Amino acid sequence: MILTLNNGVSMPALGFGVYQTPPDATAEAVQTALETGYRLIDTAAAYGNEREVGEAIRRSGLDRDEVFIETKVWISDFGHEETLHAFDKSSGKLGVDRIDLFILHQALPTRFDLTQGAYRALETLLSDGRVRAIGVSNFMPEHLDALMKEAGVVPAVNQVEVHPYFTQPEVQAADADRGIVTQAWSPIGGITSYRGTGAATSTFDDPVIVGIADAHGRTPAQVMLRWHLQEGRSAIPKSVRPERIAENFGVFDFDLTDAERAALDALDTGIRHGPDPRDITLEAYGSPIPEA
């Protein structure tokens, strides 16, 4: 399944994420994902595993144009010149001349001047052909409003926490109004497994999700990923286990009914499990990104 971004670039709707995957496990996991059929790989400078992602892509034997590479600029590298250099660091570690989707990892609301400068750098990289599309991550509607007061290019993607227990309808609406694809991190609610919701231990145990999965002969994870795809979102599940990597990719041969999708939508608790994007500061979250 392919999504067409607002600048005409095609992006696979289902990708493979490597958040918190240790560098020594990343190359094997990504190689397994590529062998399974994934063609979108999502990483970030702050993950510390860009080099291993690039290594796995080279090992795969796939042509560079067959793999859509997405990575993120950390807040410590915000600012126009700093973000241009962040591209050099990321592209060097990945071993590529061009990055398919380059996005800002957070909004940094207390220093939005740096956020604006970083986004101007993304626009420069896009104009120069060094990236194919640009975007943001964890941007709330007010961050998008502030960004677009100066930006000339609408972000193609906004990557945010979205799963059945936290759907962020106001963010999704703000994205849709601007033609921005909402991309879900923690799309199957893995983050709920270790941060209680009060509704169930985790999304994987929720009786509504389990019931829908049983009705289709699928797993809860497959139901949640299918829900994202049918609602027009991109999703980037992660795993280092080959059987789970394959399971998460097996979502293209069944459909949820409108009633089932509505039942999943209704599970929203309004409870965020990741950091609040409005609380991100350099003092609390800044960390230098190594040169190599």
Results as ranks from 00 to 15, higher is better:
residue 2 I to N: 11
residue 4 T to R: 12
residue 6 N to I: 06
residue 7 N to H: 08
residue 7 N to L: 06
residue 7 N to V: 07
residue 10 S to A: 12
residue 11 M to L: 05
residue 13 A to F: 09
residue 15 G to H: 10
residue 17 G to R: 15
residue 19 Y to K: 08
residue 20 Q to L: 13
residue 20 Q to H: 13
residue 21 T to I: 08
residue 23 P to F: 02
residue 24 D to P: 02
residue 27 A to L: 01
residue 31 Q to K: 15
residue 32 T to E: 07
residue 33 A to I: 02
residue 43 T to Q: 09
residue 44 A to P: 01
residue 48 G to F: 08
residue 48 G to Q: 05
residue 49 N to I: 02
residue 49 N to L: 02
residue 54 G to C: 03
residue 58 R to P: 04
residue 59 R to M: 06
residue 60 S to G: 09
residue 61 G to R: 12
residue 66 E to H: 12
residue 68 F to G: 00
residue 77 D to K: 13
residue 86 A to E: 03
residue 88 D to I: 04
residue 88 D to P: 00
residue 88 D to N: 11
residue 90 S to R: 12
residue 93 K to F: 00
residue 93 K to G: 05
residue 96 V to K: 14
residue 96 V to E: 08
residue 99 I to P: 07
residue 99 I to N: 11
residue 100 D to T: 13
residue 105 H to A: 06
residue 106 Q to R: 15
residue 106 Q to E: 08
residue 110 T to H: 09
residue 111 R to L: 02
residue 113 D to V: 10
residue 116 Q to E: 04
residue 121 A to L: 10
residue 122 L to V: 05
residue 127 S to K: 15
residue 130 R to E: 10
residue 132 R to F: 01
residue 133 A to T: 12
residue 135 G to E: 07
residue 137 S to N: 03
residue 138 N to C: 07
residue 140 M to L: 14
residue 144 L to W: 02
residue 146 A to I: 05
residue 148 M to D: 03
residue 150 E to P: 00
residue 151 A to W: 11
residue 152 G to A: 12
residue 154 V to H: 06
residue 156 A to N: 06
residue 157 V to Y: 12
residue 160 V to P: 00
residue 167 T to Y: 10
residue 168 Q to W: 07
residue 171 V to G: 01
residue 173 A to V: 06
residue 175 D to A: 06
residue 178 R to C: 00
residue 180 I to Q: 05
residue 181 V to Q: 05
residue 183 Q to Y: 07
residue 185 W to S: 05
residue 186 S to Q: 13
residue 187 P to R: 04
residue 189 G to C: 07
residue 192 T to A: 07
residue 192 T to Q: 10
residue 193 S to C: 03
residue 199 A to M: 02
residue 199 A to Q: 05
residue 200 A to F: 13
residue 205 D to N: 13
residue 207 P to I: 01
residue 207 P to A: 00
residue 209 I to N: 03
residue 209 I to W: 14
residue 210 V to Q: 11
residue 212 I to C: 09
residue 212 I to A: 09
residue 215 A to C: 10
residue 215 A to R: 15
residue 221 A to R: 14
residue 221 A to M: 07
residue 223 V to P: 02
residue 226 R to K: 09
residue 231 E to K: 02
residue 233 R to I: 01
residue 234 S to C: 13
residue 236 I to Q: 11
residue 239 S to E: 03
residue 240 V to Y: 05
residue 241 R to L: 04
residue 246 A to K: 15
residue 247 E to D: 11
residue 249 F to E: 01
residue 251 V to Y: 01
residue 254 F to Y: 15
residue 257 T to K: 13
residue 258 D to T: 15
residue 262 A to M: 11
residue 269 T to K: 08
residue 271 I to W: 00
residue 272 R to T: 10
residue 272 R to I: 11
residue 275 P to I: 14
residue 277 P to K: 13
residue 282 L to V: 07
residue 282 L to D: 02
residue 282 L to A: 07
residue 286 G to F: 08
residue 287 S to D: 03
residue 292 A to S: 10
